[in-house]
Design a protein around this nucleic acid. Sequence first.
DNA 1: AATGAATGAGGTTTCATTCAT
DNA 2: AATGAATGAAACCTCATTCAT
Lengths: 198, 198, 198, 198
Amino acid sequence: MGGTMDDTRQRRRGDTRRRIQDVALELFAEQGYEKTSLREIAERLDVTKAALYYHFKTKEEILVSIFEDLTQPIEDLVEWGRRQPHTLETKQEIVRRYADTLTQAAPLFRFMHENQATVRDLRIGESFKARIHTLREIIVDPDADLIDQVRCASAIYTLHAGMFLLQDVGDDPEERNKAVLEVATDLVTQAHRGAGGS
Amino acid sequence: MGGTMDDTRQRRRGDTRRRIQDVALELFAEQGYEKTSLREIAERLDVTKAALYYHFKTKEEILVSIFEDLTQPIEDLVEWGRRQPHTLETKQEIVRRYADTLTQAAPLFRFMHENQATVRDLRIGESFKARIHTLREIIVDPDADLIDQVRCASAIYTLHAGMFLLQDVGDDPEERNKAVLEVATDLVTQAHRGAGGS
Amino acid sequence: MGGTMDDTRQRRRGDTRRRIQDVALELFAEQGYEKTSLREIAERLDVTKAALYYHFKTKEEILVSIFEDLTQPIEDLVEWGRRQPHTLETKQEIVRRYADTLTQAAPLFRFMHENQATVRDLRIGESFKARIHTLREIIVDPDADLIDQVRCASAIYTLHAGMFLLQDVGDDPEERNKAVLEVATDLVTQAHRGAGGS
Amino acid sequence: MGGTMDDTRQRRRGDTRRRIQDVALELFAEQGYEKTSLREIAERLDVTKAALYYHFKTKEEILVSIFEDLTQPIEDLVEWGRRQPHTLETKQEIVRRYADTLTQAAPLFRFMHENQATVRDLRIGESFKARIHTLREIIVDPDADLIDQVRCASAIYTLHAGMFLLQDVGDDPEERNKAVLEVATDLVTQAHRGAGGS
DNA sequence: AATGAATGAGGTTTCATTCAT
DNA sequence: AATGAATGAAACCTCATTCAT
């Protein structure tokens, strides 16, 4: 054999689309969506801007595609939660799994968190908000005390904050994540009790 | 009486700077910093772009000036907190006052919250972060249990979230604010107990 | 005695016009005419741009006024030369005096030299060129050999170059100026001989 | 044969970069660097301003690229001179070749000459100055009499002046150039003798 | 004698996007 | 699967100038 094409190129063959997504997400998360230009993405990948347009119709579509690819776990979680009994254990499990998901796709969620003004009028904005909303509804039923609803929202939001805002708290990331999870679980537990859960 | 100069102009004399800040903040909060152009601000005020540059050296300076003007209450709060004994009552009072401040300058804080990626590398980013950090330090001492530190951070972020993310929870904003405040106070109280407070 | 006005201001009273010229020339010479803005001049003087317009009608007028004030010696020299017999001594004397003038008003001539493209279509351009031309005509008569005409032109430009381009030649400025003057005188002398001077 | 694409476009394909340089140099030389806007260049070429930025990163880069392309002959000349024995003949040859180079790329050197204030703080300023300096060092050794060094500088400067400042001397450009070259050669010859050359 | 406020024109630069090849 | 060349719109910003006070 002995093709003339060098290995790097060979390995890259066909996964340019994925590489675009990776680099784009990295830059979006680091600098924000508006401040990341297609030129920058293209340069990092050592391709031309036009190449990006072979794989995606617009800049927004790059983001949408990333979102859709990485967000499946949350969709699954929502689906799973919907079919469970609304016991305390379920709720705690959801918090645990949600924390997991956030960790798994940290850059995306960091991006969503830090670019809310931008995301708001992108196509994905509404859909993301809806998903979080559903999650909340599962954890606390909409007829519960206002204060317990707030507790649940706060639990979710604490998980987000744990990912992105608490990087100066504590030394060991693992320990911190555990602490964050515990606080969130606590909040949900209190909400459950308040709402008359057993 | 009845000079020849029309009233609108007269009233505007001398407060253009303030009007620029007002309109700018409104638009920044609504659309985000990057997506708001100076053209837009100028058009709303019915002045030329160059007029903006008479009052502010750069676009960023407009934001900085808003930030500095509206953020004084937090500085005061930090200062006040620093001089109080670290009792539970102090902590609760701080939470209460902080909630108040957020409400007072809601558009600015909404902006800060939704444009973190942008704010991060603006001049104000670090300074804001530092202030929040100090606030946290007053509420819980940095040697406390990790979990209590997280609780305090969570309390602060709950207040933020209350402002901006919970608009679909409950019907009455007043009631919701009360609930948010209660949850935050709760978290701080728990943290205080955990940290060995009386 | 015992005025409330501080000395600096007092002393400045009435000579703002001159101070504007001084600062303007300094900046024009240093950075070029186009790259020096009225804002910059005003800031250095600690007055507003509008103040400049009290003293001068336009930016160009500032330059014109400087030119007219500092250029009198050349006008005088031309006038003087016109009335002298065209002997070698006269020519040498003109070179000497011209060198002197250049040194006296170095910043202006440096400016003229380094901003020819700009000066060309300012009002002063033609008038300056005409003066240099007359000077040349006195030194060599227009019917002389082409080569001697060039020698004379070269003499004059050597003086210019001496001011501005030879700053890396030799150590002692005084010595250098003497050398420059000697070369120029030489050229004129050769031209005079060639043209059949006695 | 006889494609549908019109000839003009076809001929332009691939040489836009060159055409930008040509038009830019023409305008820079005619009006000066600062007074020439990218809009003007683009309009003359019947392309958009953005097209210029496809080919060059900044306005300055357009100039730099022109400079680098047209200035090679001087670099070559310096290189050549460096390897020759420092005889009178070599020096005269250098003057001759330098005059040639100036004629070849007259617009560029006219530009450099008339925009010194501008060029000074552009990237090319230092590099140009260094080259002229080296040229001078070859013609006269730096330890020679000050007066001979001045003579050499004057020779070089006479060549420049011949290009741009003597357009009103004599009728026939060819004749004038010959005269200029002779004066410059003379100066170098005198300098050589003075420096103790054979 | 000078300021404060503003303008209109225009500057350089960047961006997302297109399309023939 | 990707490039080279270009565009149209718009961004931020600066400038010389004006004028009522």
